[in-house]
Design a protein around this nucleic acid. Sequence first.
DNA 1: GGACGATAGTCAACCTGTTTGACTATTGCG
DNA 2: CGCAATAGTCAAACAGGTTGACTATCGTCC
Lengths: 158, 158
Amino acid sequence: MSAAGGEEAGVPLARLFAMAFRSLIDALHARLKETDVADLRPAYGFVLVAARDGAPSVNDVAALMGTTKQAASKLIDGMEADGYVHRVADAADARARRIRLTPRGHAALRTVEAVYAELEAEWARVVGRERLEALRGDLTAVLRSQNGGRLPAVRPTW
Amino acid sequence: MSAAGGEEAGVPLARLFAMAFRSLIDALHARLKETDVADLRPAYGFVLVAARDGAPSVNDVAALMGTTKQAASKLIDGMEADGYVHRVADAADARARRIRLTPRGHAALRTVEAVYAELEAEWARVVGRERLEALRGDLTAVLRSQNGGRLPAVRPTW
DNA sequence: GGACGATAGTCAACCTGTTTGACTATTGCG
DNA sequence: CGCAATAGTCAAACAGGTTGACTATCGTCC
């Protein structure tokens, strides 16, 4: 008797989300293993995207990830050591340091996005593009509605 | 179409899943804080449900969670110490030990299910019951199709 | 009916990532 | 100015997980 059995009735959404997340992240990093960004850790991708869209501070990263700023700082330390980002002084606030992508970071982002796009395409092949976008829209709507219009932090509380 | 770089343009599904999972788990445990099962750790719920549906072995739990059997054993140690489950000998295999719910485990499961049902109901209130079930069905379909018909492990690889 | 590889589980050591707590430097505001 | 609030770091402790080694039992093949 398998512990993964008894699945016919509605599987709890929490479990589905956990599996879906893990599934995507695992597949992504499995494929990245064969590229020049094989050392990418799971959390890196989120920071890379954030750094493309803006120039997040340590606190921004902490808020994005849902950790303390100390943990965010260490995460950035790692990414900096791996050459993906670097810290730059904030022109307007001498306390703050902003994260910027290095050339390697830009390249990594492009690779990640290409591979990730494939993964979503494979999902679309199963349920159809339309349902996939409905799913994205519904999820976004619920998360925003429960969070004052903003999106919550990403890191699973485990 | 909204301004470039905004979040309205497709948020990556991986991120949405991560946020959705965290959101549900956080809300669940926030509400459980005020019950008699305040010491429930995030992973416990999955094991409780598995132990309701069957009598999982340590290896079953490891497969369900996506960890090593050592980690699963430790998890069960904790649940046993907290009085939620206990290990019983397997009638057919002297090597195996099966997990069973204690009375407290059953009570906890009932509480968790009641609170969790509320959470899903709140989701349904935003997107509608129908779309929620479509979402559940689509997710289940994709995960199964990519996993030889079975559902994959739950624990996020982080 | 033994021998042997495979399987279930545990123990112990270690590793990684996160938190808690304390501290410095800068900012904004009364 | 004076001072609370904010941005960030350092350091120690912790939690949960992994790797590796080991025991006991099972199943199979001869």
